[in-house]
Nucleic acid binder design. Structure first.
Lengths: 108, 108
DNA sequence: GGCCAGCGTTAGTCATCACTTACCGTAAGT
DNA sequence: ACTTACGGTAAGTGATGACTAACGCTGGCC
């Protein structure tokens, strides 16, 4: 199981999110990903390393090129993590809203 | 609509995630949240500010105390953002797997 | 009014990390 | 073997941001 914290740390950077989005849009090689971005290719390479460690992307060698693709594993990890918060958050939120409504009634 | 990037930036810090988790577990005042943590109270206060801006928590004054609660809005934002990736990621992943299988067959 | 508790804010410091430049290894073409 | 394209890595720098200490403000209590 991948640590959700690691994935969130990976997604907690704007540039890295842009790289991730480009991979998902179909970009393959590191060059293609870096083209049009305002950072250098080595920077992209380092970001890909982090994304890979978080299991957000997978890589595969093809000749001298290295092709990157999206890995659902990391996304699933955050998704599960979020869902845990989601349910409890809704319950807590509803309870708080109820309590607010009670106080509101008392005020009149 | 809350920006998903802002929420991810907020969750991209370990300490901030701890603060968020404590709020969800029922901690209310800033003191209660800070108690037992290895950072000072002002630090917690600053983290709460970021979490609030990302609409992950809400605050409400009660006397001199300030009570914090979880706000589902921010979580929903990341959730939607993730779901977008989720669907396309699965499709892309399946396609890639298919292509791999084809290549595998060709190899024999 | 005086006092205390609870928080937010500011200023300043320190560490983390994103980025670039340069370098090295590797695979394919000639 | 030479060259070229591609990409990971190391070293060094700069900027972002997390943290603490000190201060100020507000609300409740005596």
């Amino acid at each position: 199981m991948t640590n959700a914290g690691q994935v969130l740390d990976a997604l907690g950077d704007r540039t890295r999110r842009a790289v991730f989005a480009r991979v998902q849009r179909g970009a393959r090689s590191v060059q293609e990903i870096a083209d049009g971005m305002d950072v250098s290719r080595p920077a992209v390479s380092q970001h890909l390393k982090v994304l890979k460690a978080a299991r957000l992307v997978t890589d595969r060698a093809e000749g001298t090129r290295r092709l990157y693709a999206v890995d659902p594993t990391g996304i699933a990890a955050v998704r599960d993590w979020l869902d845990g918060f989601w349910d409890e958050a809704l319950v807590a939120f509803k309870a708080a809203a109820e309590q607010e409504a009670v106080k509101e009634r008392k005020r009149r």
